[in-house]
Design a protein around this nucleic acid. Structure first.
Lengths: 155, 155
DNA sequence: GTCAAGTATCTCGATTTCGAGATAATTTCT
DNA sequence: AGAAATTATCTCGAAATCGAGATACTTGAC
């Protein structure tokens, strides 16, 4: 057992509260999405295709924050359920384009509004002005952390 | 494809940047911890026992943000590796107390400082004053979201 | 133009996490 | 005291995720 080095180490504290906040809000998301017999990642794919239209798998992957192998897995499931379809790109033969099927579009159009409502409630502890402040801070934090990752990760 | 309902829906935006920020910072954490041949959850257990001393499994679980079955799984691994030991509580015979073994203590004492350093770098994109602001906002957000969960979850 | 490096997707096995439920002990209510 | 509700831990099978690497294609350097 060890005593705090300086009573409060703000950066480490930030990491802790970030993780806790994410966890709490994510549970709302999970619970909301579970109502529709979907996993959060599956929902993420439907949502991004709904809002952005047809997209390459790699673009979808970047937005749903999972690795490429997991993306394949989730897309497979959605294709099997008839909610998403794959199509080869004409311009770049490596890429596979994803789009909603009519059934997928009907589904997400129906479930997105109640889910959005649940998420608004999830973060409603913060008044709107604080929400806006948090958005600015988290955006800077996320971009900064991502940049520092790039700097090391690359093979 | 659907156009934005009001150009910017701050609460939903908050959820998105929260998830992105968490993901980016968590990657730093993962990479840092991977240096020591540990998973983030295993590290979490060692860290909490290091800072808080002997604790019931349920207290550890609350802090590492995984379900009880996953906690059993991770603790098992740490026990097998000789880093943590289990002990029955005298006062409440349901509870199992966890504590570091000497080897576990030596390990975490050695790896915590470099990990803390990596995490400080991970969030360093935010100047200290913004870090403090973010801590306050995220704490309120996390507590509020958790409270709203309680209100529904309970069986 | 050719070759090296980079990018997109997928496969496969292993790991991690979850969820439901079993068991046992404690606490609360009546 | 006894029943009912709550809490703590664990088991087990299923689901999600990862990581390494294979394959195919494209881009950039020379």
């Amino acid at each position: 057992m060890k005593q705090s080095p300086s009573r409060v180490d703000v950066p480490l504290q930030l990491w802790v509260v970030l993780a806790r906040a994410f966890d709490a809000v994510e549970r709302h998301s999970r619970a909301s999405i579970a109502r529709f017999e979907l996993g959060t990642t599956e929902f993420g794919v439907l949502e991004v295709l709904y809002h952005k239209g047809e997209l390459p798998v790699c673009d979808v992957q970047r937005r749903i924050l999972v690795e490429s192998s997991s993306t394949t897995y989730v897309v497979d499931k959605l294709v099997k359920r008839g909610l998403v379809r794959r199509r080869h790109s004409g311009s770049d033969r490596r890429v596979v384009l994803l789009a909603l099927t009519p059934a997928g579009r009907r589904l997400i159009r129906r479930i997105f509004p109640p889910h959005a409502h649940a998420m608004r409630r999830a973060v409603a502890a913060l008044p709107p002005s604080d929400q806006a402040r948090a958005v600015r801070l988290l955006r800077a934090l996320g971009l900064g952390a991502a940049k520092r990752l790039e700097a090391k990760e690359p093979v």
